[in-house]
Design a protein around this nucleic acid. Sequence first.
DNA 1: CCCCGGGTTTGATCCACGTCAACCCGCTGG
DNA 2: CCAGCGGGTTGACGTGGATCAAACCCGGGG
Lengths: 247, 247
Amino acid sequence: MSTSATAARLAFEVVKTACSNCNLRELCLPIGIEPEDLKKLDELVSTRRRLRRGDYLYRAGQGFESIYAVRSGFFKTDVMIEDGRDQVTGFQMTGELLGLDGISSEVHTCNAIALEDSEVCAIPFSHLEGLSREIHTLQHHFHKVMSREIVRDHGVMMLLGTMRAEERLAAFLLNLSQRFKARGYSPAEFNLRMSRDEIGSYLGLKLETVSRAFSRFQEDGLLSVHQRKIRILSTDGLKKLMTHQRN
Amino acid sequence: MSTSATAARLAFEVVKTACSNCNLRELCLPIGIEPEDLKKLDELVSTRRRLRRGDYLYRAGQGFESIYAVRSGFFKTDVMIEDGRDQVTGFQMTGELLGLDGISSEVHTCNAIALEDSEVCAIPFSHLEGLSREIHTLQHHFHKVMSREIVRDHGVMMLLGTMRAEERLAAFLLNLSQRFKARGYSPAEFNLRMSRDEIGSYLGLKLETVSRAFSRFQEDGLLSVHQRKIRILSTDGLKKLMTHQRN
DNA sequence: CCCCGGGTTTGATCCACGTCAACCCGCTGG
DNA sequence: CCAGCGGGTTGACGTGGATCAAACCCGGGG
């Protein structure tokens, strides 16, 4: 498969990166590391990489060798099957990890695409494994991160398997809201980095359905929507919508 | 939550278990381990546990301390949300691991239930972490297993998000078939351990829809179905159904 | 032997979401 | 300033699967 075309123009740069003073330590990997281990940790991140909106961080089929921590920006990952159908499997924001799917077969199984200009730290996986043999807390934290990804996926399966359109969108918005909040941004007002189509793909809906759900939420006074600018007017309303409805 | 009721009657037994001569080594964890490491490995599995059909291996909310390898039998895992809705997140057979979801928060996030009389090896997670610091290949293999779980979940998300009822069932049957084959059983003829309802829950469908799809496959000569006894008559037919259809 | 009950099948009807199509809005570039 | 365009909204209509309901099948117990 000729996936290298656009990927080729991606620029690498070796940077003197310091995990030890990175202000998003807790979100990424190194939580609760002993001071004396911090300098070892700094060797972990060998390269920093900048991406422009639309750039691929990696593509399905490419060899796997690093996982990536989002330093800034916003990504989506998607998978594709033979017949051309594809689906967004996740959206990643600052402090979150990308590429865990590649470990199993040494090959990336999905595409990771920047939804806005972004910057990531590349963490060579073999280094990570090596270092996590020395630093217990790093090892354990990494395992937790992988496990959390599994739990998150179960949540999405639940959403896709049992929830109706408006519930899915409500769940999606509440999740985003909370993640923005955790990063110090307003949980009530933010703008979406992804299109209606991408939201739909993630939620197993068509973009028209997503659009209608947005309109409905606005009519009901739960939200104000202007293009991709979202303001949540009633978190409770959204939550109620999810829990209560039917079944 | 009073989850301890039925769980209480589960019997533990400390067994002299030997991973080193377990005939499903390759499926479970220890692949490609050096001979001298094998005896260390044997200390890993501290307890064996037998379960009867319907028994819970663990419940959502219980503290996490071990992962489990299925030695024999068949399990399902399911998650539940507040309002009572639940969904089957997976079916596990011989040689597969259970409990990876519990690592992230030290608490199990789903229920694991035996669908037939089964036996599992309990692998205390802290032991596993300790040993994987010594044995590189164990560490790496474990990471691969976790990653594979993530990839599998993405596949299910794809299925739930983009496939129609019959495609879902076809994909499900092909997957089962392949897993039976990998274990030395017939890929063409097997009997399902789970009810139509459980299949439906896993596939995001109602049991009636599952039942109708089975009937349709039978009419079309792809399958013969008698109760839970399945015989696949045309693997290609099932595959074609998945790839080709619509969209 | 029949009765009972859980799981399954099948049919008739309903409805949430998909599909198709028109239109709109805000941006970019000529 | 306007044209063109990609993304978004809205409406009319079709349909796949849910829902409701009845009947069936099979194993187990009296």
